[in-house]
Design a protein around this nucleic acid. Structure first.
Lengths: 230, 230
DNA sequence: ACCTGAACACCGTTCAAGT
DNA sequence: ACCTGAACACCGTTCAAGT
């Protein structure tokens, strides 16, 4: 199946460009992880010599920045709809970002290291801040609320990606099951809650449902209970 | 001032041990950052040959795990006090973890990659879960609430560390000011909220106050308003 | 048992050279 | 302008050797 030489045939001249490099970079990151994302592996996947990539990007950092902004631009922002309550629209906006970060866990590492610079990430911030204002928050409260929501989203996605990485490293068994058995095996007299709640803690490692649970609590605390006082 | 040879004198035999390696590792990580944390730099700081460290640790990963657990063990857990409302005690517990992560931003990178294995991190989880149960949450709700709080704490600390890293890289100017001027310079017709709220967004990059703002909102959403219905 | 230095298989990037 | 291969200065780790 694979090339005996483990080196694919060289692509003809002039076929390399920034888009092809970025597409291969996303593939490589998502498939092999950040550690395996090397300039040599990237070039090999593209069928060119290692240094060919440097004709289109200054170096690895510029590729990483471009990948981050490219993927953030792919967030499917729900259509603005003034009739819906801002709470609900904000929730969907956040879910879209979380979904992106979950589907491309490697971006997380990149997002965590350097902030988004691209225009599309900026548009997301604009939308979110507008919804927070519409929900009745003043300037400082909206800024703090936006920051808190982003902090939680990044943290939740990172938490999930961490579980996946452990699974990939340790023979592909369920990370939730590993967590459960680790907690369940602790001495119950010293850790009564932890041992008792091991199954529930494992159940909370389920990605989107857990994210929604925390997000709803956070938004309720930030905006007030939407079903409560009215 | 510095050694002309840029190589410090070798330590006498038998003075190296796990504790000295870990202390040097924490120093190196906090002072020089994760990228500069190499086995060669660590050994040089200890005044031994590179391979001497391998007599005490299997490799770099084992050192990283040990550093993470060591620092997590240093979290100053507030004394348990059944008279205080669980909401307040949980808040202090979380603040202690956030403070640790902020003071040792390099640990974050490590915490984000692999979960805490050490006993002390486990003790923190036990305390937090106990408080959530005391606050009236049932098993599944307590597990989800604990996970959400940890996710938010990691995300918030990472957010702060990211700002610091940018500052260190880009000539030491204030990261909040950089963020403010970037947002303030956007076209106001396309980004009315972002340009208008640039100062408030910059003000929200203040670490602990922002963390507390989000944490209180999250706890309120998870536990119910402590001052509200009673 | 503890520590060393050389060596191996990597990495990102520079550089002179090719087309 | 675009791409190449050799080379440089790194990295973590293996290994045979020293004490």
């Amino acid at each position: 199946m694979t090339d005996r030489s483990s080196r694919r045939p060289r692509a003809p001249r002039g076929t390399l460009n920034r888009d092809r490099v970025l597409a291969a970079a996303v593939d490589l990151l998502d498939h092999a992880g950040p550690d395996a994302f090397t300039m040599r592996a990237l070039a090999q996947r593209l069928g060119v010599g290692t240094m060919a990539v440097y004709s289109h990007f200054q170096g690895k950092d510029e590729i990483i920045d471009a990948v981050r902004d490219l993927l953030f631009a792919e967030v499917e922002l729900p259509p603005a709809d003034a009739r819906r309550p801002p709470h609900a629209e904000l929730r969907e906006l956040c879910r879209a970002v979380y979904r992106l970060l979950s589907e491309h866990p490697s971006v997380l590492h990149l997002l965590a290291t350097r902030p988004v610079q691209g225009d599309e990430g900026t548009l997301f911030a604009e939308r979110a801040l507008g919804l927070l204002r519409r929900a009745g928050l003043d300037g400082p409260a909206a800024a703090r609320a936006y920051t808190a929501v982003m902090q939680y989203t990044v943290g939740a996605a990172l938490w999930t990606a961490r579980g996946r990485k452990v699974r990939a490293a340790q023979g592909c068994d369920d990370p939730a099951e590993r967590l459960r058995s680790r907690f369940a095996g602790l001495p119950p007299d010293r850790y009564p809650c932890l041992t008792g709640l091991a199954p529930q803690l494992a159940a909370a490692q389920d990605g989107m449902p857990q994210y929604e649970h925390g997000l709803d609590a956070l938004l309720t605390g930030l905006l007030g209970d939407p079903d409560g006082r009215g």
